[in-house]
Design a protein around this nucleic acid. Sequence first.
DNA 1: CGTCAGGTTGACGCGTCTCAAAGTGGGTGG
DNA 2: CCACCCACTTTGAGACGCGTCAACCTGACG
Lengths: 236, 236
Amino acid sequence: MKVSLLEGSRWQTCADCAVRGFAVCAALDKTELWELASLSRHIQHEQGATVFAQATVATSFFSVLEGVLRLYKLLPDGRRQIIGFALPGDFLGLAGSPQYEFSADAIGAVTLCQFSRAGLARFGEDRPRFLRRINELAGRELTRANEHMVLLGRRSAEEKVASFLIGWRDRLAGIGHVGEVLPLPMGRLDIADYLGLTIETVSRTFTKLERDGVIRILTGGISLLDTARAEALSAA
Amino acid sequence: MKVSLLEGSRWQTCADCAVRGFAVCAALDKTELWELASLSRHIQHEQGATVFAQATVATSFFSVLEGVLRLYKLLPDGRRQIIGFALPGDFLGLAGSPQYEFSADAIGAVTLCQFSRAGLARFGEDRPRFLRRINELAGRELTRANEHMVLLGRRSAEEKVASFLIGWRDRLAGIGHVGEVLPLPMGRLDIADYLGLTIETVSRTFTKLERDGVIRILTGGISLLDTARAEALSAA
DNA sequence: CGTCAGGTTGACGCGTCTCAAAGTGGGTGG
DNA sequence: CCACCCACTTTGAGACGCGTCAACCTGACG
């Protein structure tokens, strides 16, 4: 069974944008929205494409419209840490540094709303409501980062995988996903690099969770059989 | 040899505050500074005191004036992850959530500038310059968090310790610390919980680095003998 | 039906954790 | 001023979880 995620949504203008309700622009009124629209353009990337790379000049901000991206940092010797996955509504560029702090690439096809750094900075300069919105998103990101640190530093492999599944389920729920099947558009290697594990350990842990009746493994996703157990592991 | 850190600095008004140049208030002009001062009060905490605890109602924001705090999250079973150390100039409360996301306690004596949540929120509400300053600090914090994730997920014990030392050196340098001795006001257990290791592993790794001529261990700090080597380990 | 990328499984080794004991320095009270 | 105490740190020995290396499986696609 093939599991898909947020396919087929389309838009015409900012006002009826699919992520209007939870993206950066949620804070704006109609007039501002029009002005912002004039600063943005939609871009698409296909599976695997790199949207921007760590340490290159940060010329743009992005807001995700459709699809999922992996955000990661590389060590000189090639070790990779995925610091997060970006979903529709997520804003990229919060760090505000002149170079990108991490790389981002598309997992599956993605559609983004692109803004020039300078343009958006000028737009926001004197709009407290917009700035507060940015703060809100940054705060949320910071909270996620803090929880991720606990996961990476203090949890076992099994707890890591369970936390990831629960966290992913909750994020998808937050953008309106329903259904008893949890799509996992990223591969095992991405999950491993997100959790600070190897692909083999992730695979073994999935198998163990399935053997224990906590999940069922499907192609492209899983199904949570024993939610309580998974949540316990994830909180533990 | 006892190593001390930022002892003895005093202030009278916000205008000649010790952290005036790099705290939140750096963005404010004289008039605003006076208004902000009326919203704040100085508080002190002694060694080991908890300033605020995870999951309690977040009634205040804080700006660190003197001393060092550890910021940490606890798992139900007592495992602890230190997500960062707060130094003079650091602002606490960026997450903006109604409950504190983590606990903070004093390592040694600390002096803080305390603001009521509501008061500061009102103050900032319509001051873009202040909001942008908050954004800047949040961005910096986010960058640090991202790097911390790489450290926790993808580095060996030796690399972790070296990264910690280099990072700590740079942060102290950033607030004006000079001298060839690097003070470490936090204990080994704090370092372990910051790096996602056990105290024994941290201790062993310090010893190894000393044996290899990279550092010299002093009471309350270290001295970096082979900076290049330490930096190499830290970047690796 | 062959190919290929991604996923799974197994055997083994290593790095870090665990448990235990001894060392060290600062502070306190006699 | 010394002796004791206590928290913190260091060191050692052994166990174990996860990484490594290698082989095999599976499903999608041509």
